[in-house]
Simulated scan of single mutants.
Amino acid sequence: MVEENNIDMFEKFKKWAVVGASPKKEKYGYKVFKTLVGRGFTVYPVHVAAKEIDGFKVYPNISSLPEIPEAIVLIIPPDKTLPVLEDMVKLNIRNVWFQPGSESDEAIEFCKKNDINFVAKACIMMDVSPENFRFEI
Results as ranks from 00 to 15, higher is better:
76 I>L: 12
93 I>G: 03
62 I>T: 06
60 P>C: 10
81 T>A: 13
76 I>N: 01
1 M>Y: 08
7 I>T: 13
106 E>G: 01
39 R>F: 07
117 N>H: 08
125 M>P: 06
59 Y>N: 04
79 D>M: 04
111 C>M: 07
121 K>N: 15
132 N>H: 13
38 G>W: 01
32 V>R: 02
123 C>P: 09
28 Y>W: 13
93 I>V: 06
53 I>K: 04
6 N>L: 02
48 V>N: 13
116 I>F: 06
104 S>W: 05
127 D>A: 09
136 E>V: 14
23 P>Y: 06
18 V>R: 00
3 E>L: 14
12 K>M: 11
87 D>F: 08
107 A>C: 00
6 N>Y: 04
131 E>S: 11
115 D>W: 09
87 D>R: 06
116 I>T: 03
80 K>N: 13
107 A>M: 03
44 Y>L: 10
64 S>H: 08
48 V>H: 15
113 K>F: 09
106 E>I: 07
48 V>L: 15
58 V>N: 04
90 K>V: 05
106 E>D: 11
92 N>W: 11
45 P>E: 07
18 V>Y: 03
71 A>I: 08
7 I>F: 09
137 I>R: 15
57 K>C: 06
83 P>K: 00
37 V>K: 14
102 S>Y: 01
25 K>L: 03
62 I>F: 07
50 A>R: 09
67 E>T: 03
45 P>L: 01
61 N>W: 11
71 A>C: 14
103 E>M: 07
42 T>V: 14
137 I>H: 14
2 V>W: 10
9 M>K: 15
100 P>Y: 01
68 I>V: 14
39 R>S: 08
30 Y>H: 12
117 N>M: 08
88 M>C: 09
17 A>P: 05
27 K>M: 12
37 V>P: 07
83 P>A: 02
131 E>V: 09
65 L>T: 07
79 D>Y: 13
92 N>Q: 12
117 N>G: 04
131 E>Q: 12
54 D>G: 06
110 F>E: 07
31 K>Q: 09
133 F>A: 09
68 I>L: 14
75 I>T: 01
